[in-house]
């Protein structure tokens, strides 16, 4: 399963690679990283919808996570990738907007990697 992580914090890559080192070793999960919404869209274009799951931060300079979500859900209809939104602000407006745009899940920072792993397992592929 290929997961695209979108966040403007570059260290997120090192963190995910270490958190999921076992899964990566076993080739259970494969990670790709993008540091902005624009980069994420470009990646999707290039890799022809390889990513099945997209984990995106909402607050980013330039294109926000919500904008990205909207674009993805509009563009890639069949089968749409699973998009999980991550944000430091767990406010209801962000949540409802995300849900309206078709987000599959909504996580708040700081990320609990144990819960994330459980959720990943439950995604039917």
């Amino acid at each position: 399963m290929k997961i695209l992580v979108v966040d403007d914090e570059k260290d997120i890559q090192a963190l995910f690679q270490q958190r999921f080192r076992k899964e990566i070793k076993e080739h259970a999960l494969e990670f790709a990283f993008a540091y902005s919404g624009e980069e994420a869209l470009a990646f999707m274009q290039q890799h022809n919808q390889e990513a099945v799951l997209i984990l995106s931060d909402i607050n980013m300079p330039g294109m926000s996570g919500l904008e990205l979500l909207k674009r993805i859900k509009e563009k890639y209809e069949k089968p749409p990738p699973v998009v999980m939104m991550i944000t430091a602000y767990g406010d209801s407006e962000n949540y409802s907007t995300a849900m309206q745009y078709g987000a599959d899940d909504f996580l708040t920072k700081p990320l609990d990697f144990a819960i994330l792993k459980e959720k990943l397992k439950s995604i039917p592929l």
Binding site: E9, D11, L15, Q18, R19, A88, K109, P110, L111, F113
Partner: peptide, 17 residues
């Protein structure tokens, strides 16, 4: 507070890992 939150998250996560 928010700005501090991000680095602190990293500190916590990296130290856990």
């Amino acid at each position: 507070a928010h700005e501090i939150q991000n680095p602190l998250n990293f500190v916590n996560n990296f130290s856990e890992v």
